[in-house]
Nucleic acid binder design. Structure first.
Length: 157
DNA sequence: GCCAACGTTGGC
DNA sequence: GCCAACGTTGGC
C-alpha cells in the first residue's frame, strides 16, 4: 500500500484513533476492483512511502474493514469528490487499515532491487508502476521481511 | 472503437 | 528537472 508521506505517512496512521484509518481516495479501476472484491478483514499489507527519499517500505498494516463505498467520492467539498459516484451505485471503494507495527528500519527501494532475485516479477520494481495498491505474494512478503533483520547495504557490523 | 494528445506519477 | 510509463480524454 503506497502513500506519499508528505500527504499521508505511517506516522499519520500511528496517530490515528486506534491506529486505524480509512484508506480512501482510490480512483483507479483495477485497484477499486481489488478493494471491492478481493481484500478482506485480516489481510495484511506493507506500508510503502513513495515520492520521498528514499522510497521505502516502512511498516505493516492489517485490514480491519473490507471494501465499502468510499465516502469521499460523495462529498462535494472533498478533493476526491466524484459526482459520477452516488450512494445508490457507488463507483469507488475504501477499506480500513490498522497499523500492525513499524519495521525495525525502513527498507529502501534500492534494497528491494538488490533482492530482486527473491521477488520475481514485482510491480513495485518496474518503472512507471502507478497502482496505489499492489498485490504481494507470500514469497515476496517473506523476502522483503527477511531484509528487515539484515544490516543495510554498505554498513559493516 | 481507435488513438493521439495530455496530465499525472514517481524514481532518479 | 527530466522523463518513462500509463490512465484518461475527446475528436473523429
Amino acid at each position: 500500500m503506497k502513500s506519499e508521506p508528505a500527504v499521508y505517512g505511517i506516522d499519520d496512521l500511528a496517530r490515528a484513533p486506534g491506529q486505524t484509518d480509512r484508506w480512501d481516495g482510490i480512483r483507479n479501476y483495477q485497484v477499486r476492483n481489488w478493494l471491492r472484491d478481493v481484500v478482506q478483514v485480516g489481510d495484511r499489507g506493507l506500508f510503502y512511502h513513495s515520492n520521498t527519499r528514499p522510497p521505502a517500505v516502512v511498516g505493516l498494516v492489517t485490514v480491519t474493514r473490507g471494501g465499502y463505498p468510499d465516502p469521499t467520492a460523495f462529498d462535494p467539498q472533498d478533493p476526491y469528490h466524484d459526482p459520477k459516484s452516488d450512494p445508490q451505485s457507488p463507483r469507488w471503494f475504501a477499506i480500513d487499515v490498522q497499523l500492525q507495527r513499524y519495521l525495525k528500519r525502513p527498507i529502501p527501494l534500492g534494497e528491494l532491487r538488490a533482492a530482486a532475485d527473491g521477488l520475481g516479477d514485482f510491480p513495485l520494481l518496474r518503472r512507471g508502476n502507478r497502482l496505489s495498491i499492489i498485490p504481494v505474494t507470500f514469497a515476496q512478503w517473506q523476502t522483503i521481511l527477511a531484509l528487515e533483520n539484515q544490516a543495510p547495504f554498505g554498513v559493516s557490523q
